[in-house]
Each structure stands twice: as C-alpha cells, then as structure tokens.
Design a binder for these strands. Structure first.
Lengths: 165, 165
DNA sequence: CTAGGACTTCGAGCGCGCTCTAACGCAAAT
DNA sequence: ATTTGCGTTAGAGCGCGCTCGAAGTCCTAG
C-alpha cells in the first residue's frame, strides 16, 4: 500500500513523542494546504499514486473539479477530505465503510450522530487491534529471547531436545 | 479473517493484564495439546476453518499425516506449528514470509540465524504498526472529541462555519 | 513541425488470503 | 438398505484495494 509512506513521514515528523491530540492537530496542517493542487501534487503530498486518487474519486469518496483542459483541480476541501480518508484507510477502515461515512457527510448535519457512532466503533476496532498487536509483540519477543527459531510456540521447558519442527 | 476469533479468545483470557513474556508462555498451553486431533478439532481450537487448515497444508506450511481412511491426523507438533503460524498471520506476517520461514525451519539448525533475523524484522514491523495505530487512535479521538463528523481533519479554529464537507 | 510530458477515460488485471463447490469415500445410526 | 455426517480432492471463485495499460487530448519546448 503506497499509503504507508504517509505514515512513515508523519512518524518521522513526530519523532519519539507520544502522539497527543495536540500533535495530531499540528500534523494536520504541517504545511498550509494550497487553494488548489494538481493530481500529481496531491499524490506527492499524500504519498499515494495518481491512480489511487482517481480510484477514490470513482469510488465516490471525493468530488474533484476540472479545469479548462479537463484536468483535475483539487481544492483545499478535497485535499483535507483526502487527508482524512488516508488516515482512516491507514487505521484499517474499509473502503466500504468510508463510502458509507462519506454518504452520511454528504447527506447533511442530521447524520452527525450516526457518523459519531461510526467513529466510536472504529475507535474500538483500533483499540482492539492495538491489544492484539501488543500481544503479538510479546509473543515474538518471547520467541526471540528464549530460543529463536523453532515453530513450536513453547520451547521445551527443559531443553532436552529441540522444539518441534 | 476467521483467525481474528482466536485473538478474541486470547484477549479475553488475558483480561486487562499487560501481556508479558510469562503470560504468553502460559497462553501457549492454556489447555494441553492432545497427542492427535481431527481437522474439525484443530479448526475449532484455532478458530479457523477446515478449509483454511487444508489451504495452509497445501501451501506447505504444515505436514499432516493421514489415518486409514485418508483423514488428516494432526499431531501435537502440527498443532503447535499451527498455533505459531496463526499468531504470525495475525500479527501481519504474510503467507509468503511464513513459507520462507518454514522452509528455513525444515532446512535445519544452520538456518537459525536467518530465522532470528526474520523474527527481528517482523518485530520491527509490529512496533511500527503499533506506532501507526497509536497515532490513528489519537486522530480518531481528536475527531470525536472536537467535533464528530466532518471530513476535514481540522475543524475550524474558530467554528465560524462548518468544517469542509 | 515534432517530440515529450502530463493529463484524461475506460476497463482489465493482479496479489493476497482465503472460501467455496462438486463429486466422491467411508462408517455408524436408523 | 439408506441416510446422515464427516471427511477427502482438485480446482474455481471471491472480495479487497489497488495498479496498470491502451488510446487519446492538450500544451510547451526545441
């Protein structure tokens, strides 16, 4: 996923600081969003391909105006929406869910509660995934520190023979 | 992924405790591994489908003996290997990588250094993903707490108008 | 005048990880 | 005797999220 590169950038920018709400807020406008950008500029900025940007548009996730030559012109709102979309994709929200979310956004203010519910549910998904990964990390660490190669998840209590192949 | 259910079980078993090396070790043999199991029993235990188990076997990740009727008989080693494989899949290691890892295991002790390197690299991948998710979580929290619905990642500094749709 | 380069659309193709179907075998239960 | 149930195989199919190719348009530089 080309999208991963954006997170690399962001993490680099963060350094080792714990991400806080404030940090996120700052990240949002690390650089000002120009009032309009070409597809190449947006692709570069979000670290995804022009192909992907067109794909997102086809999928109904953004609407993008055209200039006199029929070329896409991304305004600041479109770019901000794409930043949001990219973040959500990266955190594991599916295209389908994002399409639904965007439908809600486009449907108006009265859908705010449902949007909140989606975000809350997604939050839970992220938390769950964090716990899974933390556990996996511990498991891998265990494997590295105690032996280092066999597939049996438990190394022999008494290393009389090699762990199961 | 059906595999997710296993982690659900494991997380439930863990409760809110921080996963530690010891906890992982205990988890490994939460229940004793019988000396042989049918495909249905293994599927049930690992919370993945019999289809998937056959698929893993076809992919060369495990070797499974047959009984007189040609039915699969999973011995303890096979089950332990599958526990390992499931864990690694869940933590994001690809089938391709696992195939390589298993080749190394089957190739003998002299591949231990390379296996260690793979594990270490995978460990880094997990850590990176944890950081990404932590950041995403902060972003989602930010969105939930500050506004709750628009796609613009930054809500207006002064909420004069609605954030970008 | 021509070549290059960035863009357009439409639609096909791909890699991954399963997931399922069809047709069949065997054994115990009715 | 047949139904039920659990297993087998080979191979096709699917959902996802891109990713790419072909053919064409337009502008600019040489």
């Amino acid at each position: 996923m080309a999208t991963d590169d954006l997170m690399t950038k962001v993490l680099d920018a963060l350094g080792d600081a714990q991400p806080t709400v404030e940090a996120i807020h700052d990240l949002t406008d690390l650089a000002e969003v120009p009032s309009s950008m070409t597809i190449a500029e947006v692709a570069d900025r979000l670290a995804l391909s022009a192909h992907t940007l067109r794909y997102y548009e086809r999928a109904g996730l953004v609407t993008v105006a055209r200039d006199s030559q029929g070329h896409r012109v991304y305004d600041a709102d479109a770019v901000r929406r794409l930043v949001f979309l990219t973040r959500m994709r990266l955190s594991g929200m599916s295209m389908r869910e994002l399409q639904h979310y965007i439908e809600l956004v486009d449907a108006g203010e009265h859908t705010v509660p449902e949007r909140m519910a989606m975000l809350a549910e997604h939050r839970d998904t992220i938390v769950r995934r964090l716990r899974e990964l933390t556990l996996s990390l511990a498991a891998v660490d265990y494997k590295i520190t105690t032996y280092g190669g066999a597939t049996g998840s438990d190394v022999e209590r008494r290393p009389s023979r090699d762990a199961a192949a």
